[in-house]
């Protein structure tokens, strides 16, 4: 194989990248704007911000990093990573909030 034909680099993909770019900018503005709204609780602010960040992150990963059309091997590696990443966060937080009854904190 003489060329890397796995990612077409034609004019219309440039347009795709630009659309993603605009979406990222809109997302940034949106998240700043949302942070100044006083939702009934701070938790909602957090969820909104993380959802926007997650969307932006997925756009970067999917289009700029071409994850949307990547090979199976890469997907396998990243799924393992995602699982262990979740395990690290979830189990650590769980462990640090599950105390035996009558434990005195602070």
């Amino acid at each position: 194989m003489s060329k890397n034909e796995n990612h077409p680099a034609t004019a219309h993909s440039v347009r795709g990248y630009l659309i993603v770019y605009v979406a990222l900018i809109v997302g940034t503005i949106l998240t700043v704007w949302a942070s100044f709204i006083h939702f009934p609780s701070r938790e909602i602010n957090i969820v909104v911000a993380l959802v926007i960040a997650g969307t932006k992150g997925s756009l970067v990963a999917a289009y700029f990093m071409h994850l949307i059309s990547e090979r199976k091997m890469i997907y396998s590696v990243l799924s393992c990573t995602a699982i262990f990443f979740t395990g690290l966060m979830a189990l650590t937080l769980w462990a640090l909030h599950d105390f035996p009854s009558l434990t005195v904190t602070h």
């Binding site: 189990l91 599950d98 434990t103």
Partner: peptide, 9 residues
């Protein structure tokens, strides 16, 4: 001093 649930896990 971890709780019983997480320790069971």
């Amino acid at each position: 001093g971890m709780g019983t649930r997480i320790s069971t896990f």
